[in-house]
């Protein structure tokens, strides 16, 4: 009798966990991002430039970007994408930075983590991050590409 109860409990638990996995995989989305944005300077201080602009690609919406140049050749960035459908996706990036006349090129990797709305579990690492700073105006063109899930 006790064995039957035990087997029933185990079977029930397995069923529940399979259901949970099914629900979880139904909720999780993965996306191959290929975003690009043209941005303009909205502020900044010292080694930091704050940018804002429209983003297009797999997700359309707006994007804010804070770029900080450290040393002469290294850049870090914080970015937030605001998809037009609502919510937001947060990310950080780092890479190299080099000035070449009227422009400065940067490239490296970005990690996306968290956000709001349906993107609150956004996650992606090692995405490709690159762009150009137009030094005369501080306008920035930036692209982010790679896989992420939410």
């Amino acid at each position: 009798m006790r064995n039957r109860v035990c087997r029933a409990l185990v079977a029930g638990a397995a069923a529940v966990s399979m259901l949970a996995v099914a629900v979880s995989s139904a909720d999780a989305h993965s996306l191959n991002l290929k975003e690009s944005a043209s941005m303009h300077k909205v502020g900044g201080k010292g080694f930091t430039i704050n940018e804002s602009g429209n983003v297009s690609g797999s997700i359309k919406g707006k994007m804010s970007l804070t770029i900080t140049v450290s040393g002469l050749t290294h850049v870090t960035a914080r970015l937030t994408v605001y998809p037009s459908g609502g919510g937001s996706i947060n990310g950080t990036a780092s890479g190299s930075y080099r000035v070449a006349g009227a422009v400065a090129h940067f490239s490296g990797t970005a990690n996306l983590k968290g956000g709001s709305g349906k993107y609150k579990k956004a996650s992606g690492s090692g995405l490709k991050f690159s762009g150009v700073v137009h030094r005369g105006s501080d306008a920035v063109s930036v692209s982010v590409s790679g896989n992420f899930s939410y």
């Binding site: 900044g44 010292g46 080694f47 140049v69 002469l72 000035v99 070449a100 006349g101 009227a102 030094r135």
Partner: peptide
């Protein structure tokens, strides 16, 4: 020294 905000050398 901040080399980020300078607009010196906009051409090569």
């Amino acid at each position: 020294m901040n080399y980020t905000t300078t607009t010196l050398g906009l051409a090569i």
